[in-house]
Write a protein that binds this DNA or RNA. Structure first.
Lengths: 239, 239
DNA sequence: CCAAAAGTGTTATGCTTACACCCATGC
DNA sequence: GCATGGGTGTAAGCATAACACTTTTGG
């Protein structure tokens, strides 16, 4: 890259061999308004100015990758308590038009409680942030659409094989709400009786004793038990 | 870092913010001598001089991550045809004592045929390379032991849920050999009749018509069919 | 003929699936 | 009293798991 204007910045970090920049991006999911939603931030600088993008940023030199993801989440959304796991590392040479950027994508599940309380931090540059239904995304910067598609696949897989669906719901929820999460993510209807039997048999739910009052018959509220998260599907293919 | 001796190298690549180095490391598995084996290379430069390490190296600025992994494999082992998938990205700040290095680990399965033919390329520096049983590893450089443990977990998981075990075997193999692979990786004995029934029912094997002659009753040889690799376990948790 | 590995079926059990009606409440 | 979502059981089919003996070959 050559000098074009007088706005050149100093470049004091020098290495023997060229190095890519490394970022983390976070795909933060929640379940709101009967929709699977993902948090996006509107860019107000080039490239992809005004387009929407995943929250994320550069990894500091002395910080672990997961710590970087947590820091970015905290800085941009005030969120600190979230289920987080590494998703995949995307590194096509041309994914950022400015320079080589390799991004380590993290996958996060946020409870609906926290999603409702969420205040997007007014960055130095007052960027807008909002939830978008994953089935109705705006045009996205970089390769972020592909990253989100990959994350949805992973989420789908997780709900099929684990009981982590409740991480997207408020602390107390009804079985119908939980079923709705599964149906939305898996994108297909499920049998009510079988769903309830299987969920209760998994032994990860307990009744809170409270009821969800509404227009109709009140529904029992449940919370998930501590062991629910550890339970990463122990079923074995061979006896 | 400050100048210490006259051996300082020029550092012509300069950036506005500090950047980590990015490498790929490859965990190359095969099945040899009734053991699950992984390829390691002996280092002959500090740090960790004389210790063993995973094959790998720096990602070029214009090359995709997977391409980098394939290039390193080709350069160090002449291997070009291999099952390869991204495993995980390891980035603790202190994993390399020299400088910040983030490594994208790739997981590779090599057929026993190719493992036998394998010639480790005499690098500019004549490094030794050899197979090691994963249950009997030498002391390893960096965090490579942890990376291998993670890869073995993933391999175990893959064999439980997919039929990819045969990627570790020669083109033609007996069912007993295949069972031995599964038993070794899963680290437990399997029932012979159930194993055979399940494998044949999966409809990914075909008889070659040849027999393995040996000390005892000859065994039918099989190869896997093309669809075997696509078959990434389609079973669904919900109906 | 003996040692060693190859090869082969059946039964019991438990899980998965499909399916339809009554219940409690608010309006 | 009616509309709406909450809540419940059973039977058939299928996959899994446990289990032991015969066959074929080389030496």
């Amino acid at each position: 890259m050559t000098s074009t204007t007088g706005t050149e910045r100093p470049r004091p970090y020098c290495y023997e061999f060229p190095r890519p920049a490394v970022t983390v991006d976070i795909i933060l999911f929640t379940f709101k308004d009967n929709q699977l939603q993902v948090l996006l931030i509107q860019r107000n600088h080039p490239p992809f100015e005004h387009m929407w993008a995943l929250p994320g940023g550069f990894v500091e030199m002395d910080e672990d990758l997961e710590a970087a993801a947590l820091r970015e989440l905290r800085e941009e959304t005030n969120i600190t308590d979230v289920y987080l796991e590494q998703l995949y590392t995307f590194g096509q040479p041309d994914r950022d038009p400015r320079t080589r950027v390799i991004t380590v994508a993290y996958f996060a599940l946020l409870s609906a409680d926290q999603a409702a309380r969420l205040q997007v931090r007014g960055q130095s540059d007052a960027r807008e942030a909002r939830w978008w239904s994953v089935y109705n995304l705006p045009p996205l910067a970089f390769d972020h659409r592909r990253i989100i598609e990959y994350a949805v696949q992973r989420l789908r897989w997780k709900l099929e094989w684990t009981a982590l669906g409740f991480l997207l719901l408020p602390e107390e929820f009804t079985l119908s709400e939980l079923q709705k999460v599964y149906e939305t993510v898996l994108n297909e209807p499920l049998d009510k009786r079988n769903f309830r039997r299987k969920m209760l048999a998994a032994d990860v739910l307990e009744e809170t004793g409270n009821l969800r009052e509404g227009d109709h018959r009140p529904a029992k509220l449940y919370r998930f038990t501590a062991k629910a998260i550890e339970l990463e599907q122990a079923r074995r293919r061979f006896p």
